[in-house]
């Protein structure tokens, strides 16, 4: 009886969730199975898996791989840069440093992404003053693959403040007394960080990494503005189909495939993290 009451109490929330989240995804899944008639605005009759079969072509697998590869690289960089920033924002002995870092992170978060992306293009683009630095990563500024560097920097601007602010909460929840206790037992500061702090912060680090990854692989505007038309994420493929050629079924198939892949990657990474850092 009690269980039944709980279910009834949950029902409005579940219904809302189903309508807001499940409904659109279900419609997208159905759309992905419809045939497309080129040059026509009218949907085809019947059902087909052709749009999914098309995505098995090597060229399309490369688009998925590139999206995840760049996303994983940027998420890793976000974590490597965001964790020290967050740690300093929490543990710096100087209040001005703590406040300054937090203000910087929040400032980056609220600043228009478009403005930041065009600033990156001006600074790091082929003729920008920072282009030689970008070239150190292996591509000449005029080489099409240099666009990957630009997109990576753009995504980093997007994810870094979010990751760092998430980790501020993680590090705040860890008592400084743990490090002090480790130090009193003879551990060096780096030992304390590696063997005490990081394992305790691992769940927060994994969460921040997964959020950064989700932000990267679903990003549309950074590849669009900085990708020079050669760094093409799956979001761009979807946009072209939905908006430019009106091929909704194909766009929907890419969306559903991306959703499944993202679930698998997130589930896989979470499982790996649980195995590496048992609670």
């Amino acid at each position: 009886m009690k269980r039944g009451i709980h279910l009834w109490l949950l029902a409005p929330g579940l219904l809302l969730l189903a309508m807001l989240m499940g409904g659109p995804v279900a419609l997208l899944a159905l759309e992905s199975l419809k045939p497309f008639i080129p040059g026509s605005m009218r949907p085809g009759e019947g059902w087909t898996l052709a749009h999914y079969r098309e995505l098995l072509q090597p060229a399309y697998l490369v688009y998925f791989w590139e999206t995840f590869r760049i996303g994983l690289i940027v998420s890793t960089l976000s974590l490597l840069l965001g964790a020290p920033l967050a740690f300093a924002a929490v543990r710096s002995p100087r209040a001005a440093v703590r406040k300054g870092l937090l203000a910087l992170l929040v400032g980056l978060l609220v600043m228009s992404l478009i403005a930041r992306l065009y600033a990156i293009e001006m600074a790091w683009g082929s003729l920008g003053p920072l282009a030689p630095l970008g070239a150190l990563l292996g591509f000449a500024p005029r080489h099409p693959r240099y666009a990957e560097v630009l997109v990576g920097i753009g995504l980093l601007h997007f994810t870094l403040p979010v990751v760092a602010l998430m980790l501020v909460g993680t590090f705040r929840a860890l008592s400084p007394r743990l490090e002090e206790a480790a130090a009193s037992l003879g551990a060096t500061r780096s030992d304390a960080v590696v063997s005490i702090l990081l394992p305790l912060a691992a769940p927060g680090l994994v969460s921040a990494f997964l959020v950064a990854l989700a932000m990267c692989i679903s990003n549309f505007v950074a590849p669009l503005v900085l990708g020079r038309g050669v760094v093409v994420f799956t979001t761009s493929l979807m946009y072209t189909r939905f908006a430019d050629i009106g091929n909704y079924p194909s766009g929907a198939a890419i969306g559903i495939t991306m959703l499944i892949l993202a679930f698998l990657v997130v589930y896989g990474l979470s499982a790996l993290a649980r195995r590496l850092v048992p609670r």
Binding site: Q57, Y60, Y63, H143, P144, R145, V230, V232
Partner: peptide, 11 residues
């Protein structure tokens, strides 16, 4: 998407 973009990306 399948024939030109990969070539352009290669540079």
């Amino acid at each position: 998407e399948t024939e030109i973009t990969p070539l352009v990306r290669r540079g």
